[in-house]
Design a protein around this nucleic acid. Sequence first.
DNA 1: TCAATACCGTGCGACACCGCACAGATGCGG
DNA 2: CCGCATCTGTGCGGTGTCGCACGGTATTGA
Lengths: 249, 249
Amino acid sequence: MLTTDGSTRSACRIGDSIPKNILRPEIRNGLLASLPLNELELLRPRLEPFVLEFESILYEVGKPIEHIYFPCSGVVSLLAKVNGNSTIEVGLIGNEGMAGVSAFLGAPLSPSRALIQGAGDAFRIKTADLDRYGGALNRHLLLYAHYLMVQISQSAACYRFHPIEQRLARWLLMTGDRMESNEYSITQDFLSNMLGVRREGVNRAAGVLQKKNLISFSRRNIVTIDRSGLEGTACECYEKIREEEKSLR
Amino acid sequence: MLTTDGSTRSACRIGDSIPKNILRPEIRNGLLASLPLNELELLRPRLEPFVLEFESILYEVGKPIEHIYFPCSGVVSLLAKVNGNSTIEVGLIGNEGMAGVSAFLGAPLSPSRALIQGAGDAFRIKTADLDRYGGALNRHLLLYAHYLMVQISQSAACYRFHPIEQRLARWLLMTGDRMESNEYSITQDFLSNMLGVRREGVNRAAGVLQKKNLISFSRRNIVTIDRSGLEGTACECYEKIREEEKSLR
DNA sequence: TCAATACCGTGCGACACCGCACAGATGCGG
DNA sequence: CCGCATCTGTGCGGTGTCGCACGGTATTGA
């Protein structure tokens, strides 16, 4: 990966990646890729390449959903706002899915904030343009909507019952699955907003994971060292969600 | 309402109601009712009246969804199982909606347990039969799927940030909106499974609400006394979900 | 009618997480 | 290269909920 200072590193530096595949004809989004060729061709003229920039916001709570995004790389977080200032992640979207499900389901306004949590690239289509299609596209998108509901439900239960350490492990795994690297650049503060806890809580939990030699972290940098160890530490929610993913293919 | 001992009471005794409108031609389910007449007539031959019996289970986690239910009265809880034995409510369905959204979205197996939390009656249709229809039915059902996602997301955040007392208030309001009475028969133990807390926690929280003269409760019986007072005590989640409900109509 | 069961009320120590405070480390711009 | 903003590490008291224990009261059924 090319960083701003010109050096090369294996890390997935969230925020400074410059997608290179944006002009490539291959569709690296799971939903689009699983379409029959003829349906994809119908859709293609409406698809517009789009760069997902770190920390930019696709949708804001209560604002219109103008485009639906099909990520080819990168990660999008769905965030709910609570108590005025707190935020909490209720969904995580990678190149297996799409952002803007609610619009597809017919809702004009976004129920959550969609935040680019890992830079990447995507195709997007105007919400109005998507309405015209049906067939296999519909089937796939609907099934994905279902998957997202499962993910959200599981998160609800997870927030209620599982300690920070397990939630952090799950988050690292789920994000890892959607990124191309096992090393990312992210602040504890950012993570605290994802997990719905204080920054200090993230610090403690990460410390525990590091002591167990599952991850290593320092300023703005987290590396997963022992992936299967993390799976053992994470709560059941990770496995459950992953199981549900299989039905998407 | 007729109770088992033959006496009449205004309470909504969850569990022993004998729906009387099951033979009436009117459709008291919001989703079905909002269909254009011609579409409803197409669907009608496939619709089968069904009695929702208290504490019976419509779907079990991981089991097939054979029918989709459109309640005309009564309440259905969607429950997620966590940590083996704990359960937590991630969705609540009344006559504004339907149970089995996942099947409609194309998922063959149920991601959650669907438990009749308040007796009533419904129409149901074989999952396979529903697939053939489109048009306004689709639009409505999709929008409802969206609404349910909002509800689940909000619950996730709610479980994380809001104390039992507020969650209980919200639960009473949401359930009240879907029942025909402001008095219901329910055990603290049952409630604890809905809210994902211990029975003792429910007891304390209910005690506080009672002291504030918002509810009154005794063995298996809860009465909401001051509805608007409850709204003041409940967390923001109630209002947010209610707001989203408006878009269903 | 009496015993078994279901349900409710409460007290107490444990613990996870919070809120706050503050000091140290790192990186960036002038 | 220095100053300032950002990010990190840690300590301490407070609070909400848990886990457990146990006694009380209503309901049910033989």
